[in-house]
Amino acid sequence: MHLLQLFTVLVVGTSLACAVISQASSSETNTCSVVACGMPGLPGRDGRDGAKGEKGDQGVGLKGQQGSPGKAGPPGPMGIQGPSGEKGLKGETAAIDPVQNQVTALENKLLALQTEFNKYKNVVLLQGLTVGQKTFFSTRHHDTFNNGRALCAKAEAAMAGPKNAAENAALHELTKRDSKYAFLAITDTQTEGKFVYANGAPLSYTNWNEGEPNDGNRAEDCATILAENGRWNDLNCDHKSLIICEL
């Protein structure tokens, strides 16, 4: 505001000065404008904006380092399940040899049986006596001759029948442990007075007590071994005696 007033004063003063100079000089015109007198005029209006210039070249500068990633946003909703793919080709069936499977199964079964047999064999060896290829064991059970044979057969064994003095000594030892006498697999049921092994084979060894077998009218058709001396005596087959088996 002050500048505008000052500017107005200057313009008015200059106009008056020009008027005085015009009157004093006859060789000059009788008019004097502000422009002719060299004084600046009032500022004009702002011109219109010019046309937009062309885009300048991109400046060259170093690329700044990438900033640290921001926090992960919340998971979006689950998308729609896509269509099922095509069914693949059927794989090849492995070739199976049925014979080989059977062989393997039999081998496993044989191994299990062998293990079971060895377990029972060890028990028998602990409780029995072995002579050569035979093992004798006492069942500690007293029964008739026929029941005794069935009991031994159930254990996959046979009723003991000594073939020599060594086997007879083993049977004598087992009899002394558990009873006064034990049945032997020797009878004369097939032919009276002719004792043979229970399987029908002729005797290869005998050890009868003095005066035995005497049978008489008592139907003493089965042989027993006596605990007192290891010798044999004939006895009724229905009598209950100690049962000894052999493997």
Results as ranks from 00 to 15, higher is better:
N147S: 08
N147R: 05
G148N: 07
G148V: 05
R149E: 11
R149I: 10
R149D: 05
R149V: 10
A150Y: 03
C152G: 00
C152W: 01
A153P: 03
K154V: 03
A155V: 01
E156K: 06
A157Q: 10
A158E: 14
A158H: 11
A158Y: 14
G161L: 07
G161E: 12
G161C: 11
K163H: 14
K163E: 15
K163V: 14
N164I: 04
A165S: 09
A165C: 00
A166C: 02
E167G: 05
E167V: 02
N168I: 04
A169M: 03
A169S: 10
A170S: 13
A170W: 07
L171G: 02
L171V: 03
H172V: 01
E173G: 00
L174A: 11
K176I: 07
K176W: 04
R177W: 00
R177G: 00
D178F: 13
K180I: 08
Y181P: 00
Y181Q: 13
A182Y: 08
A182L: 09
F183N: 03
F183C: 03
F183T: 10
F183K: 09
A185N: 15
I186V: 15
I186A: 06
T187G: 07
T187P: 09
T187R: 11
T187Y: 08
T187M: 04
Q190M: 04
T191Y: 01
E192N: 06
G193E: 07
K194V: 14
K194L: 11
Y197D: 12
A198C: 07
G200M: 12
